[in-house]
Design a protein around this nucleic acid. Structure first.
Lengths: 192, 192
DNA sequence: GTCTATAGCAGGATAGAC
DNA sequence: GTCTATCCTGCTATAGAC
């Protein structure tokens, strides 16, 4: 029996995802979620145990989505350098920040192992995959052999996450782009 | 007439600074500030117009402090590369994050130009000073001449800001350190 | 200057009708 | 499954005594 639309529980999760991205966990109230989802109190507490439970469902989905997106780029075509470049230059809504990374600035997310786990796992998998690509680049002679793959992977992810900070501080994506271009210049084969 | 201690307004500002660092603007309540400062409601509203006004005073002081600290390192002794290295390796309470950068993830700070201004200015001055140091390094032949100083400066600041994200996600400073070491390897004269 | 009292509203959750 | 009513607590601010 198909309802012809999206289920209430689905709307609750999507509304929570949007609000967590925009306002973080501390800044997101059940009331705001319900208003955005067009649902009443009862629906939320029927489908979820409470705010943390609903937030966990939302965070898990956002994390999965990010893993899928980044994997697609890093497993895509091109040389190792080109795939790292594609990851760094991929379309982003820079001023909105990273829906996963921003959660690390939320005290209640960091304090709750269950909420932090999907965030940690997502960034960790991204780093691990990037390290593999860097390793490939070294083997193929495209990247400098002296580089530590795990370190470079951390640098790449950090530059992106920090780029969001610079962009949001200045109110413009320019600083994000500058940081990315600087990193690409440092990685670029032609500069070795 | 010296009170022999610290003024109430002073304690309010310092308490607010600590809470903004720990919990952000949205997550910090006047009540929590007053408890930490050991003051009553009246004191706060006597010295400040309200939460935003007190937060502005606290953010301005934190911003000034960060400018002073980073300037001291970047104006210090050593070659340009060594000064950038000193900035990147300087002692940090990594898991607490950056007291200035973390504010960019706060929706109410970003939405309020007065609150965002000191954050923007601080990170912008840091980038500008780093760009000058990079420029020096290029002139002295210590850094690759093809690099764009402003871009590299953005990359350096972004790596630090993003390093905090990685560290807080994993609950360990290791990822911050890895990102910094990766960046230093990419910048290092010996790798050109 | 600092305190307590109070106000009005929002946060987070529960109860029970439909 | 979904709704509204209700509860208790905390947030932000104001009033007015000391």
């Amino acid at each position: 029996m198909y309802s012809g639309g999206v289920s209430t529980s689905e709307r609750l999760i999507e509304s929570t995802r949007a609000l967590l991205w925009e306002r973080g966990y501390v800044g997101t109230s059940p009331k705001a979620i319900l208003e955005r989802a067009g649902a009443g109190q009862g629906s939320m507490y029927h489908h979820f145990k409470g705010k943390p439970d609903l937030a966990l469902a939302a965070i898990r989905r956002t994390a999965e989505e990010m893993v899928a997106t980044t994997t697609a780029v890093l497993d895509g075509p091109g040389t190792p350098y080109e795939r790292i470049e594609a990851y760094l230059l991929r379309e982003r809504e820079v001023l909105r920040g990273c829906p996963v990374g921003r959660l690390t600035m939320d005290p209640e997310v960091v304090a709750d192992d269950a909420l932090r786990a999907p965030v940690d796992e997502t960034l960790d998998r991204l780093r691990a995959r990037l390290a593999e690509v860097v390793e490939e680049g070294k083997e193929q002679g495209e990247l400098a052999p002296g580089l530590d793959s795990a370190e470079i992977a951390a640098t790449v992810v950090a530059t992106v996450q920090g780029g969001y900070v610079l962009a949001r501080a200045s109110g413009s994506p320019a600083a994000f782009d500058a940081g990315v271009r600087g990193l690409l210049a440092l990685l670029a084969p032609r500069h070795r």
